[in-house]
């Protein structure tokens, strides 16, 4: 029988479905009986979902437009060098 600490150590493999049948079943059994671990797994799942929607800072638009010139082959001046 898995204890709660073991559940937290394996929760993300469980969410990623990187578990065999037996291990998965053990997780399920524990989660059915333990609301604390159920909460933990839900919080972890929500964290991952938030990461997917995270709006990280975008690069500057003018950098993009300088690259468009590279794409056009407007090679009059060499592409950005630092």
């Amino acid at each position: 029988m898995l204890n709660c600490r073991e559940i937290t150590e394996n929760a993300d493999r469980y969410l990623d479905k990187e578990m065999g049948f037996l291990e998965r079943l053990q997780m399920r059994l524990h989660l059915m009986m333990c609301r604390h671990c159920t909460r933990y797994v839900e919080q972890l799942k929500a964290t991952i979902a938030m990461l997917r929607d995270l709006r990280l800072e975008q690069p500057a638009e003018e950098s993009r437009e300088r690259l468009v010139e590279v794409l056009r082959g407007d090679g009059g001046r060499p592409p950005l060098r630092y």
Partner: peptide
């Protein structure tokens, strides 16, 4: 966790 590996201070609830 306690010595048996069960929660002694379980996850604090927040609106996920």
């Amino acid at each position: 966790f306690d010595r048996a590996g069960m929660w002694s201070d379980p996850p604090h609830e927040f609106d996920v």
